[in-house]
Design a protein around this nucleic acid. Structure first.
Lengths: 216, 216
DNA sequence: TTAATAAGTTAGATTGGTCTAACAAATTAT
DNA sequence: ATAATTTGTTAGACCAATCTAACTTATTAA
């Protein structure tokens, strides 16, 4: 069985994987806030356990086993978030840190029960897909709001970041998933957007924020 | 903040405390299945943090701080068990091991939400009292069934052991909390009891089992 | 009351996960 | 093409939690 620490490395590897599935040691180090030598030594350990493919001075790739292990943890994380919101009544901004802890619980029945109570949901409260029990992910591809053009009418489908601060900001703006958004203008210099949604007056969102809003 | 390991020592110390609040290093070692030298060194560490009173070659006692920390963990454990049974629909025999993991979650709001959803319960699914948020325990004193006499009519209030095997055994016997039990006879040699409850025919329970059944 | 046994401690090793300092390879810029 | 910068590795230390072996203190039995 993998330790809690190993699980966090696997999760980070999965979420940092680019198209080729490659991840630089440096990126992993930054994501986990763990110094590079520590990451290097953990990569050796995970390679030993055949969870990653690793050759020195080369980027790392999850093996099939590693990918399976990673999606399994992500499944537990996202089911937990959904449960916290739907069953326990938490706000979507409160659940990330709690789920971060509960995802490491070793008890298949516990997560299967959640899944059953929730009716086998496909998405978590932040719009991220929940892997099924075999690790398959319903791969929706969303665009960043920041990549859309003036005049586009889109629908808010997911957030690219579940931090409490960002979600609280969206709460104050009255912006939630499934909301339809119209882009009124885009500032060419810094990408700031003026948008409207619901029955709201036009409002201005920075590029940093628009990068984290995923739409169709 | 205390580590998960420290929390397990505190919990064990609390549950092993005798009338004087004293616990032998040896008993702790057996309970936690950790060798005595390790326990000794952890006692030094906890004494350093003023969670226990410890002098070498003497039994250990929890300090007031230590007691508070211990009851706080026990509160989280028992709330979790109650939540798993009442909200998620688990059987009382399934919840101990899951709660053992979730009790270490650091998130006051999470446990307060459970408490609220459950309507501030005073007892867990095994009849053990749930400490309130200040660590106060509603101290019911129950007798062991094994200490009762022939002819006594008693009520099953709690179990002294929450292991899956023992509770599964009670399930097969159709014996649950609040059931009224009548003692038909006691074997003087080994303490085996013949009892009846509900609309059941008389049945025979060993002393080992009767020791773990708490009644009024 | 002394010998035997049980309980507790000390010393030193081990493992997992982390770090810093120093060095090596790869990438980028000049 | 070479120098500068960034990225990655090696070596060695540290801390928490564990262990075994050897020793000491306390308790129990003869």
């Amino acid at each position: 069985m993998n330790s809690l620490v190993e699980e966090n490395y696997l999760k980070a590897l999965f979420s940092l994987s680019n198209e080729d599935g490659e991840v630089n040691v440096n990126d992993l180090s930054k994501r986990l806030e763990i110094k590079m030598p520590t990451v290097t030594s953990m990569m050796k350990k995970l390679a030993e356990k055949e969870l990653v493919h690793y050759e020195k001075y080369r980027p790392v790739r999850l093996s099939e086993m590693g990918k399976k292990a990673a999606t399994h943890i992500i499944r537990k994380h996202r089911l937990t978030e959904m449960f916290l919101v739907e069953v326990m009544g938490f706000g979507w901004e409160e659940v990330h840190d709690i789920a971060e802890q509960i995802e490491h619980v070793k008890s298949p029945v516990f997560f299967n029960k959640m899944d059953e109570i929730l009716g086998h949901p496909s998405f978590d409260p932040h719009g991220s897909p929940i892997p099924d029990i075999n690790g398959n992910i319903r791969g929706e591809q969303y665009r960043k709001l920041s990549e859309c053009k003036k005049g586009n009418k889109v629908k808010f489908m997911a957030v690219a970041n579940s931090s409490e601060n960002f979600l609280k900001f969206l709460n104050t703006k009255g912006l939630s998933l499934e909301t339809k958004i119209e882009i009124l203008s885009v500032e060419p210099f810094d990408g700031t957007m003026t948008i409207t949604y619901g029955d709201r007056p036009p409002d201005v969102f920075s590029k940093v924020v628009c990068d984290k809003i995923l739409v169709v």
